[in-house]
Amino acid sequence: MRILLVLSLLCISLFAEPSGYIGISIEDSTEFFTLKGSDTINASAPQYKIKAGYGEISNFAVEAAFSYMDYSTNVFSSNDSAALMLDITLYKGWDMGYNLYPYLGVGIGMGAMKVERQLEDSLSFSSFNFGGGVRYGISQTYDFDIGVNYKLRTWQTISLVSEDVKVTSHLVNPYIGINYHF
C-alpha cells in the first residue's frame, strides 16, 4: 500500500511538471463529405496516430500528431490511397484526483491523400479540430487516453475543367490511446 502511495505521488509529481511525452492512438469514425453543398457521401475512416507533446497533463500541453487514415470508400477517384496528416493541438487539462485528468483541446491540421484523377494526383486538405477526453494515469510514466474529436476538413479544390468544385467533410471520432511520459 505504501509503495502504491509513493508511486502514485511520483506519478502525480511527474504529471504535475512540464514533461515530454509520446503516444499512440487509434480512432475510427465515419466522415461525411459534401460536394458543392449538396451531394454527400460518407466513408468510414480508421486512423492510426503517433504523437509527441510537451506540457503538463494537468495544465497546458502542446502536441503534434502524425496520422495515417485509409477510407474504406473511394471518395475522390476510383482508387483513392491512404491519407497522411499532421495535427497540432493545444490542450488544457485538469487534475480531478484519482489519477484522472480531463482535458479539452483545439487544433489545426493539414494533410494530403493520393488519388488517381485525370487532373489531380493528390489532394491536400486542412482541418480544424476541437474535442476533449480524459487521461488516466496508470503508472508513473503511462497514461491511458480516451476522448472524442470533432474535425472539419476543407479539401483542395478539384477541377472538372468547366468548373472547380469544393469538397468539405466533417467527422466526430472517438479514440483511445496510450501515452508515455519522460
Partner: peptide, 24 residues
C-alpha cells in the same frame, strides 16, 4: 469498457461505393 463502446460507436458503414466527385 467505455473506451471500447466509444470506439465501436465510431465505426460507421459505407453507404455509397461511387466516388463523390465525377471523373472526366
Amino acid at each position: 469498457s467505455l473506451s471500447l463502446a466509444a470506439f465501436t460507436l465510431g465505426c460507421g458503414t459505407d453507404s455509397n461505393t461511387d466516388p463523390l466527385v465525377p471523373e472526366i
